[in-house]
Simulated scan of single mutants.
Amino acid sequence: MQLIKNFAGDVYRNRKIIFSLALNDFKMRYAGSYLGIVWAFIQPIMTILVYWFVFQVGFRSGSVEKVPFILWFMSGLIPWFFFSEALMSATNCFFEYSYLVKKVLFKISILPIVKIASSLFVHLFFIGVMILIFALYGIYPSIYTLQLFYYLVCLVGVTVALSYITSSIVIFTKDFGQVIGIVLQFGMWFTPIMWNYKMLSENWRWLFKINPMYYIVEGFRDAMFNQIWFWEKWNETLWFWDITLIYFVLGFIIFKKLKPHFSDVL
């Protein structure tokens, strides 16, 4: 618990510089292009449209859990977009900010959070778009929709925890970044985004439920249309936070042990 308190204290004390760096990072990503930051929104929108066309128009996928396929699919894909993009960005953050890593007085532990916060700007926009599209289909926000804030905390929490592991290791083994990319590709199919986990027998469901993103994806759906509170799934909630805490502690142990050698390698 002391580790979490210290981490939260560091984030709070450096909140202004985190926001400033995150905003600058978001702007600089698309600097020099004609459309600028508009590209940050075009790619995810086009991806959703392609998948919608393939599955709903091409394969004629019907309703899932009594909602149109596109709504069911979107509520799973949007949190995955954030997770994969934020984790990859945070994994390479020490390379990108190598000039800050070499500064003795700079708190480099905030750099993964900067990259994750930068990705959060686009994610918040897409949450708003998702709510709007649901409303166009006649599914309006309810008291359950407020759970999106909780699941957003879950999403950021597990991404931060994993990023300290990946960003620390990739400095010494650059191929590890490619491994993360491959794992994310497989992870998208291991997570019930395009398929319903209820298709599986009870004997196999546990295998997919150990994936933290399963909890978040299903949580988004619970908030948007299943109307189930997160505490009603208390066993899955406890499992998610237990595994996230393990990732967090492991990440900080690895980060603390390898940090003194960062500047030598970079």
Results as ranks from 00 to 15, higher is better:
residue 163 S to Y: 01
residue 90 A to G: 06
residue 107 K to L: 07
residue 162 L to I: 09
residue 149 F to E: 06
residue 99 Y to P: 02
residue 118 S to T: 11
residue 142 S to T: 15
residue 67 V to Q: 10
residue 108 I to M: 05
residue 147 Q to F: 00
residue 62 G to E: 11
residue 139 I to H: 13
residue 121 F to W: 03
residue 150 Y to E: 04
residue 128 G to A: 14
residue 163 S to M: 05
residue 91 T to D: 02
residue 145 T to S: 13
residue 65 E to H: 09
residue 117 A to F: 12
residue 90 A to C: 09
residue 93 C to L: 01
residue 108 I to R: 04
residue 155 L to M: 01
residue 86 A to I: 14
residue 112 P to R: 04
residue 131 I to S: 08
residue 148 L to Y: 02
residue 127 I to V: 12
residue 127 I to D: 07
residue 138 G to E: 12
residue 68 P to D: 14
residue 83 F to T: 01
residue 161 A to K: 04
residue 63 S to N: 15
residue 122 V to E: 09
residue 117 A to S: 15
residue 84 S to A: 08
residue 110 I to S: 14
residue 92 N to I: 04
residue 98 S to V: 08
residue 124 L to H: 11
residue 163 S to E: 04
residue 134 F to W: 14
residue 117 A to W: 10
residue 64 V to I: 13
residue 124 L to D: 09
residue 154 C to F: 03
residue 140 Y to N: 08
residue 105 L to S: 14
residue 127 I to W: 01
residue 83 F to H: 03
residue 103 K to P: 00
residue 148 L to A: 03
residue 119 S to R: 05
residue 139 I to G: 06
residue 129 V to Q: 03
residue 57 V to I: 15
residue 104 V to Q: 15
residue 156 V to S: 03
residue 98 S to L: 04
residue 161 A to N: 08
residue 155 L to P: 02
residue 64 V to Y: 05
residue 102 K to V: 10
residue 109 S to C: 07
residue 137 Y to D: 06
residue 131 I to D: 09
residue 129 V to N: 03
residue 121 F to Q: 00
residue 121 F to D: 04
residue 65 E to Q: 14
residue 161 A to Y: 04
residue 90 A to Y: 02
residue 78 I to Y: 02
residue 115 K to D: 08
residue 59 F to L: 15
residue 156 V to K: 04
residue 60 R to V: 09
residue 139 I to L: 11
residue 56 Q to S: 15
residue 73 F to W: 06
residue 75 S to A: 15
residue 77 L to Q: 12
residue 97 Y to D: 09
residue 106 F to P: 07
residue 117 A to V: 14
residue 117 A to G: 11
residue 140 Y to G: 04
residue 165 I to K: 00
residue 133 I to L: 11
residue 152 L to W: 08
residue 80 W to C: 11
residue 159 T to H: 01
residue 56 Q to N: 14
residue 84 S to K: 05
residue 102 K to Y: 00
residue 143 I to E: 13
residue 78 I to S: 05
residue 68 P to A: 12
residue 158 V to L: 07
residue 126 F to Y: 08
residue 121 F to I: 13
residue 89 S to R: 11
residue 65 E to K: 10
residue 67 V to M: 09
residue 157 G to E: 01
residue 146 L to C: 12
residue 155 L to G: 01
residue 62 G to N: 12
residue 146 L to Q: 10
residue 98 S to A: 14
residue 91 T to L: 00
residue 88 M to V: 10
residue 76 G to R: 07
residue 113 I to S: 05
residue 156 V to P: 03
residue 85 E to R: 03
residue 59 F to K: 13
residue 101 V to G: 02
residue 144 Y to L: 07
residue 89 S to L: 09
residue 76 G to L: 04
residue 155 L to I: 00
residue 111 L to W: 00
residue 56 Q to M: 11
residue 98 S to Y: 02
residue 163 S to G: 05
